[in-house]
Design a protein around this nucleic acid. Structure first.
Lengths: 216, 216
DNA sequence: ATGCAATCTGACCAGCTGGTCAGGGTCACG
DNA sequence: CGTGACCCTGACCAGCTGGTCAGATTGCAT
């Protein structure tokens, strides 16, 4: 047993990095999966450890054996989230064809809304509350990346390969249009009816929208 | 004192409709204003009566003198919200000029994001949680209105006055693009920096986007 | 097999939260 | 100026919530 009675889970240089046991890997995965489900549906404050424990099929004290607190579970989810979320933007290639790159980014982002709606809602929840647990990364990592990609887009525009649109707002529009289908899914489904797949129509609509917007 | 010890506040036909006193009007307004502030920032579950009471400058028991429960306060806010929110769509005139009507709707919606970000976030919070307190209205009122307006748009398209876009997704795109600036304000401001007014750039960008999208 | 670390649990706790209540102060109207 | 309805509060309560702990149980290396 180490100094706090919990298994090693810290990254700081001083702590010896014990490898996770089979059970640790399994249960930490179960907990994070359950936490994603619960936090994304109810927000941080609206979720309880009991709900997460039930969803994970573990007891509450056992949750707190693997994570020191509710905050820590949420934090662990947050750590990867921004990175995962921005990966498609990072993948936008300055050497590629401008329209294809932007359309590709939009399509990947829409795909993420379809495949990872819980992550999208977890992110949206955090933003709605003013991103209290993310503010640092927002001002730094996010702005740096977006500014860099905005410059790439500006260069494309200056080269006459794209219509002259504000690059920042272009990126915002991709975020808004794609994430809407995950975050406001209830509303979208209520309007379209239970038969229709929102993402099919969305894909066609967004293709057309960005084709028309970006043509020089 | 009436049967439940609280001032009359029900609309049902049976109850005699006592006019609100000066103090009742004042304090109910204070409470709802405070509740909007708190609920929109923290969600329903994340907000406490103590926070609302403090924000309103009243005591917690006094809050519960004017409203029977936390749910009731939230409900009162919700009642008007969907209507307020959809009013600009309702105002879209089938006899007007198609492009001008849709652009006008978009601009009014963007204006609402600027002027009423708290209402926008309250709405977004509700949607994110799956609209547990709104599901009925969603399936009924909302779908009816949107379907009607979608038909109007479809007629415009058939008359060759608009580009052939899916009317439902066109409406979704207006919602997504305008509400994003209220709901994800932290993110937008983090990227643009503290100097820039997001709504100025947004107005220009969205004008251009919808001009290009809608031209037949 | 044995012994130690890892894993797990029931019982418990303190603080918070929505809500109640008895009673005291205040307002408006005759 | 009196009086009844209206307005407000401190004190309180029960249930929930995040978190602790002593000890029981299990897994695993030798």
């Amino acid at each position: 047993m180490n100094d706090n009675g919990n298994p090693a889970r810290f990254d700081d240089a001083s702590a010896a990095e014990k490898p996770l046991t089979r059970i640790q890997k399994l249960n930490r995965r179960k907990i994070l999966e359950a936490a994603l489900e619960v936090f994304s549906a109810n927000g941080f404050r609206g979720s309880t450890l009991d709900q997460i424990a039930a969803e994970a099929g573990l007891s509450k004290p056992n949750l707190l054996y693997y994570f020191p607190s509710k905050e820590a579970i949420h934090g662990e989810l947050m750590i990867g989230l921004l990175d995962t979320w921005l990966a498609p933007l990072r993948a936008m290639n300055p050497q590629g064809d401008p329209r294809a790159e932007i359309m590709g980014y939009m399509r990947r982002k829409l795909e993420m809304s379809r495949e990872m709606p819980r992550e999208s809602r977890l992110f949206a929840n955090e933003m709605l509350q003013g991103a209290p647990r993310m503010a640092d990364d927002l001002g730094h990592d996010l702005k740096t990346l977006v500014d860099a990609k905005a410059q790439v887009i500006r260069d494309w525009i200056d080269a006459g390969q794209l219509a002259p649109v504000d690059p920042h707002h272009l990126i915002f529009s991709i975020w808004a249009l794609t994430q809407h289908y995950a975050d406001f899914e209830v509303q979208v489904r209520a309007v379209l009816g239970p038969e229709t797949d929102p993402f099919e129509g969305a894909g066609q609509f967004l293709d057309m929208l960005f084709e028309r917007l970006l043509a020089p």
